[in-house]
Simulated scan of single mutants.
Amino acid sequence: MKIDLKRRLGLAFGALIAMTLPALAGICEKRDFDGQGYVICTLTAGQEPGLRLWLNGPDGRTLGDFTAVRRTLAQGESLGFAMNAGMYHPDFTPVGLYVSDGVSQHDLVTAGGGGNFGMLPNGVFCAGGARPYQVIESRAFAKAAPDCRLATQSGPMLVIDGALHPRFLVDSDSRYIRNGVGVSPDGQTAWFAISDRAVTFHQFGRLFRDGLGARDALYFDGSISRLYAPGLGRADFGRRLGPIIGYVGQN
């Protein structure tokens, strides 16, 4: 009942926001794939400069939610969408690489380990580099050392060079609401997706590979996954977040 109440409050709050902010050209849409519902937020190459990554506010404290992110925006700016963008420690610091506005605040981690982050191969989402958008396996990223205006590391990879992660099982009983990002083969389009209901890694990976045509895709997180999409009247509440990624446009 608590989860349902939070979702209802989030939808109501999102509806209020939708009446006060522009929809920013319908960036996010509801879509069904293979019997499951998702929200997909799509950015093209020309929108890359508006993509931002947040962690701390001007006072150095963790922002933690979408309302706090919106408070950081300048006059005339609107938040088109936002979602959690990678795993974090109990103090909200990123587990892996974190680069915002070209400044690295946490280093790349290439070692394996426990949990989803350590289920190698994991990867990095990079924007503003040689291509507008890239998802790169972490060890390949360490060798290539590409320039990124913003980057966030998470794991596991969902799709690697057109193949699903080798440890994903069709009949897995591990199901969560999950979110992540995939990139088109030419790097000109990025898809940010969240499931409506609990799905397996295999189902979520297939959304990116078979439903969207992504050659590479990266898992952000599960169970804590949250979305802000004013064009859909949605503003999820929940526990505080670490890194948050989103698109900022002009009123």
Rank of each mutant, 00 (worst) to 15 (best):
S172C: 04
Q153D: 01
T200F: 06
E48D: 02
Y176H: 14
P22F: 07
G60Y: 10
A12V: 10
D221A: 02
V124R: 14
A111F: 09
R70L: 02
M19K: 15
G26A: 13
H165C: 09
L97D: 05
G64T: 06
Q75M: 09
P22C: 08
L79V: 03
G113F: 05
P230C: 12
G10R: 00
C126N: 09
G86K: 07
N84L: 05
A140Y: 04
Y247M: 11
G37S: 13
C41G: 02
L16T: 12
V109A: 04
F13K: 12
Y228P: 03
R139P: 00
L43S: 11
Y38F: 15
F220R: 05
G128D: 08
G213L: 06
T72I: 10
T72E: 14
G10E: 01
F13D: 11
L73V: 07
T110W: 04
P22S: 14
Y247R: 13
F168V: 08
S138M: 07
I244K: 00
V183W: 13
M87T: 10
K143H: 10
G60P: 07
F81T: 04
G123F: 03
A23H: 11
F117E: 13
L150C: 03
V159F: 12
R149N: 11
T44D: 11
N122R: 15
N56F: 03
G80V: 05
G35D: 09
A82R: 07
A235I: 00
F237R: 08
T152D: 00
R52H: 12
R149S: 11
I244E: 04
R8A: 12
L9P: 00
R240E: 09
A74G: 15
L79N: 03
L79R: 08
G35M: 06
L24P: 00
V99N: 02
L9E: 14
V124I: 15
V103F: 08
N84G: 03
D173K: 15
I244P: 04
I194Y: 07
A142R: 14
A82G: 07
I160Y: 01
R139N: 12
V183I: 14
V69Q: 05
A145C: 02
V69Y: 03
P146F: 01
D4E: 14
R139C: 01
G231S: 08
